[in-house]
Amino acid sequence: MTIPRRVLWSAALKGAAGLAFAFMLLPLALVIWLAFFRGEIIVFPPEGYSLHWFASIWEKRQFVDGFVTSLQVGLFAMVGGLVLGIPASFALARTVFRGQEALNTLLLLPLVVPGIVIGTSLYIYFVEVEIATELQMNASLPGLALAHIMITIPWVVKLIVANLLGVKREIEEAAMTLGANRWRTLTRVTLPLIRPGVVAAALFSFVVSFSNLEISLFLVGPGRLTLPIAIMQYLEWKLDPSIAAVSVVQIAIVAAGMLITDRFVRLSQVV
């Protein structure tokens, strides 16, 4: 009996796909494995396993401080992104005005300009602002927060506009005809209908900010590091199970954000 060629071809495709998936997940799996090694000197196979590297995270100030900074910046980015991005999305999806196309492109621009270029230009700009106003911008929370709010705007706009276009105008018009005013229609009808998009936009803004490296790189300073930068600086110097444990914490937070987002919107429509 010969196996049909269609089955063979399908198996070959699936095998190749499996290799690609393994290639994407392998580095994460290896980092997670390393976090449980007992000894500080890395040898394969390990001498034994232990959880003590997770406890040791608390002794390394730069990671705790970095985590707190990343959390603060992430929350600012999330709230700021929603506060600025949701009204802008209403203007783009619910009204028609001249120059709309250009403004849409402008709001999506932070996604197109490379992070390293945004970081470079902001660093120079903030130095000039510091000279002009004597406010500290570089290596400060406000500087980081402003930059991170800016990079969340395209994500919020993309998600909310897509959501708004899916809401039928007739439902809102029906509410108005039945006597609800604009504000009531907005809060009782439209916002509940786009809630999945709002939740996804909030989580995504947080994750985009929390994992940003290239822009933060220029805006951090001694005593004001974000978690990805603290990880990066440590890795330039050495690799050990303690940094793997810190990485596992980051992976867990991002994974939780993704899993919750996935419950509200289809991830394939977001990215």
Partner: peptide
């Protein structure tokens, strides 16, 4: 999809650490 999206948002530095292990 999650298997594709998760690595996307786990920082590049963390993934580089994985390759160092290998």
């Amino acid at each position: 999809l999650l298997a594709v999206v998760l690595p996307l948002f786990v920082g590049n530095a963390v993934r580089a650490a994985g390759w160092m292990v290998l």
